[in-house]
């Protein structure tokens, strides 16, 4: 785990309202795993005070660069958007538990809703590393409100995966959401490995579609303060044994959880 000011090597718009930031970070690039996140200070002043959790979107180990793909969502990410190449950003990480990687040959379905593609991009890059050119068994489902609002779609295609798209307005691919799309394409037969990240309603409907799938993994979001398991603020409900609710902590036990362990209702 590192706490460092890192030099920004890139901070560019990829589609309206979404940006990609590259940071020079050799140790971090070596240490980061897909699904893990960075806790980023968006300003040196006391307002906004807290760090913002942003997934590692890619770790280029050879160049020693770590990338974050982020959506401008409010005060903090707006400030992040203004950071220039050559500036420094204070980053804590890599934090949390990421996705468990498949073994070569496992059937895989990857579902990303909107900015949910961010951690999945790194995962797909790792899957490509494991599988080599033969990625026939890997299906990728990406969705957003409109076709032009799916971030880094071309880059995912360029990796060589077969990508299916879903849009709310029908402007590209399937009209509907990614879970409905995956249902239709896979005919209800989900492969050994399912990975997802996206808004809560999407994860809920995936939970309903998958039932008790033993290996499906999803990344969760919750407001965070410390990012290291100390403040106990970032809870999500997990299946409890008794009457009392049971909580896990997204920053430490997650952000990636087995879908069947979660209580998303």
């Amino acid at each position: 785990m590192y706490s460092k000011k890192l030099r920004v090597v890139k901070n560019v718009e990829v589609i309206p309202g979404h940006r990609l930031m590259g940071l020079e970070a050799h140790e971090l690039a070596m240490a980061a795993a897909p699904g893990q996140f960075l806790h980023v200070r968006c300003s040196e002043t006391l307002d906004p005070l807290l760090r913002r959790p942003i997934s590692v979107c890619l770790a280029d180990r050879e160049r020693g660069t770590v990338y974050m793909l982020y959506r401008i969502a409010g005060k903090g990410t707006e400030l992040l958007a203004r950071v220039k190449k050559g500036d420094f950003v204070d980053v804590l990480g890599p934090l949390g538990r990421g996705y468990s990687l498949p073994q070569k040959g496992d059937g895989v379905a990857v579902l990303g809703g909107g900015i949910g593609i961010a951690p999945l991009y790194f995962l797909l890059e790792c899957i490509k590393g494991i599988y080599g050119p033969d990625t026939d068994g890997v299906s990728v489902f990406l969705g957003a409100a409109a076709y032009t609002a799916i971030p880094v779609l071309d880059q995912v295609r360029a990796m060589g995966f077969s990508v299916h798209t879903a849009t709310d307005d029908g402007s590209g691919g399937f009209k509907g959401n990614v879970v409905q799309l995956a249902e239709e394409v896979l005919g209800g037969r989900y492969p050994d490995r399912v990975y997802a990240c996206g808004p809560l309603p999407m994860l809920k409907s995936l939970g309903q579609a998958l039932g008790d799938h033993p290996a499906a993994e999803v990344s969760m979001e919750e407001h965070m303060a410390c990012g290291v398991g100390a403040c106990l603020s970032c809870i999500c409900r997990v299946r409890a044994k008794g009457e009392e609710p049971e909580y896990a902590h997204v920053c430490k036990d997650g952000p990636v959880f087995k879908l069947r362990d979660l209580c998303l209702a």
């Binding site: 005070l49 407001h223 106990l232 409900r237 609710p245």
Partner: peptide
Amino acid sequence: PGNPAPRICETPAG
């Protein structure tokens, strides 16, 4: 177990 989510909310400098 503690309180239900959300448990934290950022405010100006706090």
